[in-house]
Design a binder for these strands. Structure first.
Lengths: 207, 207
DNA sequence: TTATTATGTAAGTATCCACTTACGTCTACG
DNA sequence: CGTAGACGTAAGTGGATACTTACATAATAA
């Protein structure tokens, strides 16, 4: 036969480029022509790798989810041993990082793009799964934290599932707010660090 | 001359119909043909009332904002005198109502629809203004509540601006969650009633 | 009645965009 | 070498949809 098939490799190379384009343009405005240009290709070359624009979008969703959880794992690994004197330290630092981050990955924009396509069952399912997995992840962090404490948590923080959803709500809205310039970055940081800590049952940060 | 111009009247009659259509379909899927059919008219009849589809959308945004604040005013008026023994009663009841409400007005869907059009400066500006006005409104409610208390608020609730954004974040995310069936209604109620009360510095509801 | 303007009906236009077809060139393997 | 399939280039196609045009009819003020 002839010429080995490099399409898998090409796909993994191109997905970040697609992600950037979708994040910058949104689902609708990211036309297949625009996507192709961003990749330095022609439209039909993209169509040789993915069967449809929707498939390209779902591929970027996967990619960004991986990227995001990887970031969280890194943050968790940064303090491998819980500090007995201050069991909330790790979680608090992560919240602070989250508040600082300007959403470089563009995950939230992709999610907004998907929100407007919520009538498409595949996209809707992919987004739902992503939120559910993310919630599980965060709720687990909170549970571990609760166990490491000696003093019991206040009532509202004693329900890690509820607290986890609350944190996700704050983070999601932070991104909406950034999109529309609803408040300055300082407020965004406070929202995550102060309110977030309170919800999660941590001592608020010193600052 | 001849035949009085009833376009203003017709516009106010049709806006709720447009709102319903936009809420059910989203901005993109609410084609001008679909909007016209919902109104029982032809497309060009709509275009005699509004210059563009965007103008129709902005009209529904105005209408829904009015409707929403009206609802809040009603809720506030229901307990005209603050209860000295329990100054948070009114606010708590409103949070509970908000948690129960299934978003009948469809305001949130309209907002999502607008989110995906955030690159359009007019739509973006309209949404920003709406959020800002809403925030002001809620922050004021919280400030009044703080004054009515005899005991001081806990730290995180002592910043009504921050607390107001947090409440809006919870409410917004509740709607996203409903859209994607992320959690049951019971969780949604808890999110608003329990977490919301905590954020606002109220005693949590008995339930 | 009549001129004038609102309202109704039907068809069309222009543009955008996801996706396709046709065809030429290069490269690895037999 | 020859050829099968990967890769590149260019031009479509078909459908959706915001917005328009043309014309008929109904109602109101003079």
């Amino acid at each position: 036969m002839a010429r080995p098939n490099r399409s898998d490799q090409r796909k993994t190379e191109l997905t970040p480029v697609l992600a950037k384009a979708f994040a910058e343009l949104g689902y609708r405005s990211a036309t297949t022509a625009a996507l192709a240009e961003a990749c330095g290709l022609r439209e039909n070359q993209l169509y040789r790798l993915w069967p449809s624009k929707k498939a390209m979008f779902l591929a970027t969703l996967d990619y960004l989810y991986e990227l995001e959880t990887l970031w969280w794992e890194e943050q968790l690994a940064a303090d491998p041993k819980p500090d007995a004197a201050d069991p909330g330290k790790t979680a608090r630092r992560i919240l602070d990082e989250e508040g600082k981050s300007r959403g470089e990955t563009g995950l939230h924009r992709i999610i907004f793009a998907g929100l407007s396509e919520s009538d498409d069952p595949e996209i809707s399912a992919a987004l739902t799964a992503m939120y559910q997995r993310f919630h599980k992840f965060i709720a687990n962090v909170l549970k571990r934290h609760a166990k490491a404490r000696d003093t019991p948590l206040p009532d509202h923080a004693a329900q890690p599932n509820l607290a986890a959803w609350s944190l996700i709500a704050l983070a999601t809205f932070s991104n909406i707010a950034r999109e529309f310039d609803l408040f300055p970055i300082a407020t965004q940081r406070k929202l995550m660090a102060q309110v977030g800590s309170e919800i999660a049952g941590l001592n608020p940060p010193a600052d």
